[in-house]
Design a protein around this nucleic acid. Structure first.
Lengths: 341, 341
DNA sequence: ATGCCACTTGCAAACGTTTGAAATTTTTTG
DNA sequence: CAAAAAATTTCAAACGTTTGCAAGTGGCAT
């Protein structure tokens, strides 16, 4: 690796002090016009790049923020990241994206590493395993260091800090209500992993809605998935073998809803004729598959933007009250063919 | 922001020198057992985290590598990132992910910033605009500094450096050949943006395959898209209004293929009965939509892994010959319902 | 008591940059 | 020409950590 040009190298070369070089490059007013021009031209020529590492050390500012997410391979997560980036990139921040794969260990290692790297803020979407095992010491670390921590999408309720989530409960409620109002009476739910707030909230929306309309909550119709399309196949197949079929399926996201659609079709049943299907996320593809999929829209990009705003507001005001900024973005039901009356 | 505990703080508190503290924490053998235990316990208690920034400065090693990609919001890109991460994370590296949105300006700014941050390697998927405008000075900068640069997915041919791409040409060729062999004679192509290597290679595969089988290359049947599902709608609608319809459509990726399927269905035609459709990428969803989509599999995760390996090999051998490591991964045709004979 | 050794700790420099204050040079003024 | 003022440059410290070398302590054999 070529050693990069440093200020000292050039000081030696030009027989002047490092301070002069530094000031010349920063257009400090008390530097002779000629000196400045010479040094700047030379810097240009050798392709000098300020060493940010040393600057970070000196200023105790790294202009880096950490983003910890469980996955990035689906539309929603990447939309969030894009949203964050769209606000913070113009401000000169660099994003340090860490993917936990839903693992507690990785999550906690990443927190450690980010703190060690002195990031100026952390955006975190809590991993499933962390919910499961209930360890939050790594979050305490962040708090202890007073690094702004902002939950995105998935929060840990016992922790007072900024958060941006969407209204999963009402989103699910609206979807199920729509199914009921279009005449469905036996609605199954493909739920997400146990203990994960997002999944539990949607389940709650589903159950409460059934109750409101005096429909029975049948445990047989509530099945586990892990958000992935393939995880819907086995449970829905089981569903299709029940003596009494459901007349609608509400999936915890579009992926499992699409998986469900495949099983239903393979069984020779029609959508929405025999069984209506609704999903959650409103992934772009949902508007184009056949039949087009009814889904609850989740404004991923907006989540990222709001989260980033909480962060920038905090920077402005240094206001510790930021920890009470809990933004709940509304979710919107997009009705399409898969649930047509 | 709470100032983090430093070594000096503790040196003062324990009336000993920073060196002792440092050594105690690193389990240096020549440190008294009691001293070590005391200091370690205290470190634990106050939640000390080594300041990586200062260490980076001292060692001239940041354990950070930059990844510059045009987008992250689709399956393929995120699979690549996951692949890179899976190799480099266990080695202690942090990924600095930058999304250019296909913009030259952002790409070049990000390169600048990464170099300034003294990353130890850069993985780059060239943005479309960069191809268009043909400016590669930012890449020269990387070379000048001898930072290992590895092209992923999209390369700039005029630049001798490591690269991992897939065999787009043969992938497209195989897809079109499959269409021809199942009896299609009038095959349309939804191509990607002009000038982008990935898109051009697939187009070339399409054209060469037609020629090989003595089919005419009809300019009317070659239409532009930008990889996004919605960008297929207008061109395919146009296609559907031709006096003589195509009997197959080969999309530059699954997204546009899915868009095409929608238009075809809306027109009242059947897939594959009237028109066969094939895509590229083998996104997970392709196996679940209706009809399931024939597609050329692109091993995104593998690309990331191979690219990361080029990097680690380079570290081991410090071998400048790494710049001649051009890996071309094979692409595999996955035949599904959408092209059934 | 002296010298030797082992064990433990401290000193100082280094990484690259910025910045207030001090020092030097140049210019202006009386 | 000398003194004051202005312009330019240098010095030194700072950010947090590590590490080779020097220095200190105490024990033990001579």
């Amino acid at each position: 690796m070529n050693k990069p040009v440093t200020i000292k190298d050039r000081a030696k070369k030009f027989k002047c002090s490092p301070s002069t070089v530094s000031r010349a490059l920063n257009n400090h007013p008390s530097i002779n016009e000629d000196t400045r021009r010479n040094l700047q031209e030379y810097a240009q020529k050798v392709g000098y790049q300020r060493n940010q590492v040393s600057l970070s050390l000196l200023n105790k500012k790294t202009a880096t923020i950490g983003v910890i997410v469980p996955t990035i391979n689906n539309y929603h997560e990447s939309a969030i990241i894009e949203g964050i980036e769209s606000v913070l990139q113009p401000l000169g921040y660099t994003l340090n994206i860490c993917v936990t794969n839903e693992q507690y260990l990785l999550e906690s290692e990443y927190v450690e590493k980010l703190l060690s790297n002195r990031v100026e803020g952390i955006f975190l979407s809590v991993s499933q395993e962390t919910y499961d095992c209930g360890h939050y010491e790594h979050l305490e670390q962040i708090k202890k260091r007073s690094i702004p921590l902002i939950f995105i999408d998935r929060e840990y309720e016992g922790f007072a800090t900024g958060s941006v989530i969407i209204d999963d409960y009402h989103g699910a409620f609206k979807a199920v209500e729509h199914l009921i109002k279009t005449g469905r009476k036996r609605i199954a739910h493909l739920k997400g992993p146990n203990g994960m707030a997002v999944a539990e909230e949607r389940l709650r929306g589903y159950i409460e809605c059934l109750k409101k309309y005096d429909l029975p909550v049948d445990e047989q119709l509530i099945l586990n998935t892990n958000f992935k399309v393939e995880s819907a196949i086995e449970p829905v197949t089981r569903l299709m073998n029940l003596p009494e079929l459901p007349d609608a399926i509400f999936g915890v996201n579009d992926q499992v809803a699409i998986g469900a659609m495949k099983v239903i079709r393979d069984k020779g049943l029609s959508i929405p004729g025999d069984i209506a299907v609704a999903g959650f996320d409103n992934a772009p593809i949902s508007a184009y598959i056949h039949p087009t999929l009814t889904s609850v829209a989740r404004p991923g990009r907006q989540i990222g933007i709001e989260a980033a705003k909480i962060f920038t507001d905090y920077l402005q005001s240094s206001d510790a009250a930021f920890s009470s900024r809990h933004i709940i973005l509304p979710s919107e039901l997009i009705v399409r063919e898969s649930t047509a009356g």
